[in-house]
């Protein structure tokens, strides 16, 4: 485009004098003016086009920016959702554990009852390790057994569960319930091991005060009264505001 214009102008310089003999000065001037007008028009068009292209480029920039922002929002929403899911799961697991605790007490009181529990083969529930739902079914089955007072089966199922899903979100609850089942089976030593493994795996678990209380319970049953008292004191010191601490205080006062 530009070259063309320069060419036309330069060309004029060559052409016009050569034809000067044929045209008058006025004609030549007129022609120059016409060409000049055309050049100006072309330049104007060129300018318009460039402006349009700039506008398009501007729009692309804006869209790119928008796209990045949306991507960022998408990342944030996905992250928020993940966090919410994790929290919800924690809440659920915690609530579930608390509820089951009371349900077990009720079940104990209402014994003997026949409760339909999921199929148990050799103490383990048939599960597909790749199926996430299987993990939930397995833990449900174990809870069901505990609830029904079938502590031996429950303990077996929970042990099998912990072997199969060591990293499960339910692992902490499984340990807690395994400990409770072992305690109910008067297997205090094993219960002690289970409770301690729970605290080791999850030192910051919300259940820590209850677990400490249960440990003290095992120690009492194993006639290690001094140790039990020490455990209770540790419980009171570490979790002074917990319900378990209140129970511990009462217990210490009673045993004095």
């Amino acid at each position: 485009m530009l070259k063309l214009r320069v060419f036309i102008l330069l060309g004029l310089c060559f052409v016009v004098p050569a034809q000067a003999g044929l045209f008058s000065d006025d004609d030549a001037r007129k022609q120059i003016q016409q060409v000049e007008a055309r050049v100006l028009k072309l330049e104007e068009q060129d300018k318009q086009q460039t402006k349009s292209i700039f506008d398009l480029q501007g729009q692309i920039d804006v869209l790119n920016g928008e796209l990045r922002k949306l991507r960022g929002q998408n990342e944030e929403i996905a992250h928020g959702l993940q966090e919410a899911e994790k929290r919800e799961k924690d809440f659920y697991v915690d609530l579930d554990a608390r509820l089951r605790h009371f349900e077990a007490i009720e079940a104990e009181a209402a014994k003997p009852v026949n409760v339909v529990v999921p199929a148990v083969v050799d103490g383990t529930v048939a599960v597909d390790p790749d199926d996430p739902a299987a993990e939930n079914r397995a833990i449900e089955a174990a809870y069901g057994l505990s609830k029904a007072g079938q502590y031996a089966d429950s303990a077996k199922t929970l042990q099998a569960f912990l072997e199969k899903y060591p990293g499960s979100v339910h692992a902490s609850n499984a340990r807690y319930w395994l400990g409770s089942a072992q305690f109910a089976l008067k297997d205090y030593k094993e219960a002690l091991v289970t409770y301690r493994s729970l605290l080791k795996a999850e030192p910051n678990t919300a259940k820590a005060p209850d677990v400490l209380f249960a440990i003290a319970g095992c120690q009492y049953e194993l006639k290690a009264v001094a140790r039990a008292t020490a455990t209770l004191k540790q419980l009171i010191a570490d979790y002074p505001d917990s319900a378990a601490a209140a129970k511990a205080k009462k217990l210490i006062a009673e045993t004095k």
């Binding site: 000067a20 003999g21 000065d25 030549a28």
Partner: peptide, 12 residues
């Protein structure tokens, strides 16, 4: 000026 001039003797 040269371009527009009428001088026929001027060669290109």
């Amino acid at each position: 000026a040269a371009c527009a001039s009428q001088k026929p003797h001027e060669t290109t």
